[in-house]
């Protein structure tokens, strides 16, 4: 119960204008781009015998995974921790009857909740966009095809899992550096390198977490057949590595946080 109250306190703190704008920006940029590309490419969008939902849902997911998700996480995490540094909030939070780990994980979970919510809203808005496009361009014929919602949701879940490594690293960095600049700059730079590395179709990219959202599934943007992606039950090795990076960085960050002098 107390953990839920702490998460709710963390979410309350995140009612911060830049974070809200960031979420709106991510959602409307992707939806806007999908709308523009569909509207301008209406001559090629209809393909006989193909379910238009597949292309529509895959397009938005690919854009989210390759171009948006990592920088979104970098900014979301940096801003969330920065709020605490800026308001000298640590000394208050850590002098309450909650252990440091408790607050550490409550904040982390609040960030994860925002990430999942934004992803879910994106999925929902993308479905609504399809019906809007159907209204504007009836020849796309969304209404005559069935949306495989389970498959669409699975795609988003895999992409979010593949980004957990980035989240873990960024959370660690944001807690280690009081300012905004170091974790943010590192994250943005690492993201750019991640796109380049991801497009190289080489196995080494399996050891570079900032490329994971690009390669976790075939977004039809890069060739990924040489990387060595293997399936292990429901997860592939990219997701498993992402979870591993997440766990290691979060555990290390928590270890340091518990021992930190708060001045």
């Amino acid at each position: 119960m107390s953990f839920i109250r702490s998460i709710s306190a963390e979410l309350m703190k995140l009612r911060y204008a830049p974070i809200l704008w960031l979420c709106f920006f991510v959602l409307f940029m992707i939806i806007g781009l999908v709308f523009i590309s569909s509207y301008l490419d209406q001559a090629n969008i209809v393909q006989l015998g193909r379910n238009p939902w597949e292309r529509h849902m895959g397009g938005a997911l690919g854009m989210y995974a390759v171009a948006i998700l990592s920088p979104f996480i970098v900014m979301l995490v940096s801003t969330s921790v920065f709020i605490e540094n800026h308001s000298l909030g640590w000394k208050f939070a850590y002098s309450t009857p909650r252990s440091r780990s408790h607050i550490f994980y409550a904040k982390l979970l609040a960030i994860l909740i925002i990430l999942v919510c934004v992803t879910a809203i994106l999925l929902l808005l993308n479905i609504l966009l399809a019906y809007f496009l159907d209204f504007l361009l009836p020849e796309i014929e969304f209404r005559y095809h069935k949306l495989d919602l389970a498959q669409a949701m699975t795609g988003y879940i895999h992409v979010v899992i593949s980004a957990l490594g980035v989240l873990g690293i960024q959370y660690f960095l944001s807690l280690r550096f009081k300012g905004f600049l170091v974790p943010m700059s590192f994250g943005v730079l690492a993201f750019i390198v991640g796109i380049i590395a991801g497009s190289m179709n080489k196995p080494f990219v399996l050891y570079y977490p900032y490329s994971y959202p690009n390669i976790v599934r075939d977004h039809r943007m890069f060739t990924i057949d040489n990387i060595g992606i293997t399936q292990h039950g429901w997860f592939n090795n990219v997701e498993l590595l992402s979870i591993l990076v997440f766990v290691v960085f979060i555990a290390f960050a928590n270890f340091l946080e518990v021992r930190k002098d708060v001045s």
Binding site: S6, S8, K13, R15, Y16, F92, A93, S95, T96, P97
Partner: peptide, 30 residues
């Protein structure tokens, strides 16, 4: 710390939130 109240140097306040919201956060922690 349940039985301790503290104010160390300047107050730790979230500037983007109202006074009531800041107190709500404290209420949740305590």
């Amino acid at each position: 710390l349940k039985r301790v109240g503290s104010l160390i140097e300047s107050a730790s306040l979230y500037g983007h939130l109202s006074a009531t919201d800041n107190l709500k956060i404290a209420a949740k922690y305590f």
